[in-house]
Design a protein around this nucleic acid. Structure first.
Length: 225
DNA sequence: AACCAGGACGTGA
DNA sequence: TCACGTCATGGT
């Protein structure tokens, strides 16, 4: 069994430590480091979903502003958002960009979320919702519903490509399968696997910001083995 | 001042 | 299936 991917995870964890994703606005430290019990409530699950949509192709700092705006409006829950004037809602999420699209996506998602009535959605169900693609679906499942679904992102492909672990032709599903099959073969404990998935993705984003955001990608990266 | 950010969708080959 | 344009604000 090839342990290359797991070794990368361990190296990143050694360097950066636990990341404490998904950040929640009502948590005193936002990033609840080493506490994997979150989200605790339906509203916190919804906040993860909301953040997952808002963070599409945007920095989370911008998303935090949007979430704070909604919190100030007392509207950090599905019902309150629906009851907001649509223009007020759009203005609130404006810092995250694509606010017209995202407002529509979020309202679509709220209908779906309410219909779930507390049940855990399947990945297939999520993908049917307008505005929920593969990455957002995995984000919602991994961080909102604590499901062992690995979340791939642009940094993941960039890093793995740079390290020669995948060909350029690999698509989202290929990368997801590679990582999940590797890690799930090494980590047999499901709870531990969930923690590793959650931390690994967050670590890759942190590392990606440091070494893979501007060209030449990977300059100074310490992961080459 | 171009470029990028914790992507998804619609369209036409 | 795939490449390409569109969506948009905010930081570097």
């Amino acid at each position: 069994m090839d342990k290359k991917i797991y070794n990368i995870y361990q190296k990143l964890y050694d360097v950066y430590g636990a990341q404490g994703w998904w950040p929640l606005v009502n948590h005193p430290k936002k990033y609840h480091k080493l506490d994997y019990s979150y989200p605790h409530t339906s509203n916190e699950i919804f906040e993860v979903c909301l953040g997952s949509i808002l963070t599409q192709n945007t920095t989370f700092i911008s998303v935090e502003k949007s979430l704070q705006n909604l919190k100030s409006l007392n509207a950090l829950d599905p019902k309150s958002i629906v009851n907001l004037d649509i223009e007020v809602f759009k203005t609130a999420i404006r810092p995250s960009g694509y606010y017209n699209q995202k407002a529509k996506y979020i309202l679509e998602f709220i209908k779906f979320f309410e219909d779930l009535d507390g049940k855990i959605p399947t990945r297939e169900e999520l993908l049917l919702v307008l505005g929920i693609g593969e990455e957002t679906a995995d984000s919602i499942l991994l961080y909102g519903y604590k499901q062992t679904q690995y979340k791939v992102d642009a940094y993941t492909k960039r890093i793995f490509l740079s390290l020669g672990l995948i060909p350029n032709s690999y698509k989202y599903k290929d990368i997801k399968n590679l990582i999940e099959s590797n890690l799930s073969n090494i980590i047999t404990n499901k709870q531990q696997l969930l923690i590793v998935y959650q931390e690994f993705h967050a670590l890759i984003v942190q590392h990606g910001k440091n070494y893979y955001s501007k060209k030449p990608y990977g300059a100074g990266c310490f992961l080459s083995n």
